[in-house]
């Protein structure tokens, strides 16, 4: 009951702030063409959604994000497993990973543009690079947390190394891997939009910059609002999928951030 009340109070604050936005614009407290009322922004959003312009842009952005998430995620998991299970791989690649990891991904967009051009390939690569590191780190951590007894159990039944990796190590580290993906998911949306803002003529990011040049405040806020809702929906969807995939982890009383 109290937690319900607390949730409700947080929701009330959101409504209050939106109301303040509306009133401040309507009553001219903030007198600027760049401060349209909230309802006008929602109307603009609805209009652009109806024309099919926004869904197309969002679809493109989401597609590039998903492709990058998949490519970077698979690479992160595979290399993470190899890192943790094969000492020579760790010795060989660890220095490179440690040198590349701190580079802010937007900084590699200009050189990537030179090699990969302005279109999908470049943007998917940028997202994949972003996703790769948190997934890699978490996979390595997850593998280290696998119970030694579970691995020895596999050996005592004569189960081979590859099968042990796929049927013991991978599922046991899945909670950690998914935690990495959750971080990566948020970053992937950010980076996908940033890449579109910097280069090329695609997606929500590019649209946002265009609207800024055109001075169309309503569209700018509408896009920002949409991205906010999109990020929220992606995270919620991910948490739901996570609950299904590693239900056993939650049943064992492990905490989630949900």
């Amino acid at each position: 009951m109290t937690s319900r009340l607390r949730n409700a109070s947080g929701f009330a604050l959101v409504l209050a702030l939106l109301l303040l936005w509306e009133v401040s614009a309507r009553l001219g407290w903030v007198a600027s063409p760049n401060w349209p009322p909230f309802t006008a922004v929602v109307a603009a959003l609805a209009r652009d959604v109806m024309t099919g312009e926004i869904p197309l842009l969002v679809g493109g952005t989401l597609w590039r994000m998903a492709a990058g998430l998949f490519a970077g995620g698979v690479a992160g998991v595979v290399l993470g497993l190899a890192f943790a299970l094969l000492p020579f791989v760790a010795r060989l690649f660890a220095p490179i990973v440690e040198l590349l990891r701190p580079i802010p991904v937007p900084a590699v967009i200009p050189p990537l543009v030179l090699f990969l051009g302005l279109d999908d390939t470049m943007k998917v690569t940028v997202v994949a690079l972003t996703v790769f590191f948190p997934v890699l780190t978490n996979t390595v951590q997850g593998v280290r947390a696998v119970e030694a007894d579970a691995l020895a159990m596999g050996r005592t039944f004569g189960i081979g190394a590859l099968r042990r990796a796929l049927f013991i190590v991978l599922p046991a580290s899945l909670p950690y891997i998914l935690a990495g993906f959750r971080i990566a998911l948020a970053l992937a949306l950010v980076v996908a939009v940033v890449a579109e803002m910097i280069a090329g003529e695609q997606g929500v990011g590019h649209y946002l910059v265009m609207m800024q040049f055109a001075g169309r405040a309503e569209e700018i806020y509408a896009t920002v609002l949409l991205l906010g809702m999109l990020g929220y929906a992606l995270n919620r969807g991910f948490l739901l999928a996570e609950r299904r995939m590693i239900h056993w982890w939650f049943a064992l009383g492990r905490q989630s951030d949900a």
Partner: peptide, 16 residues
């Protein structure tokens, strides 16, 4: 021919 049975069943059983 040999199978090892572990002390801690919670660690050797696969919870998934």
């Amino acid at each position: 021919e040999a199978v090892y049975v572990f002390q801690q069943y919670t660690r050797s059983l696969l919870p998934w």
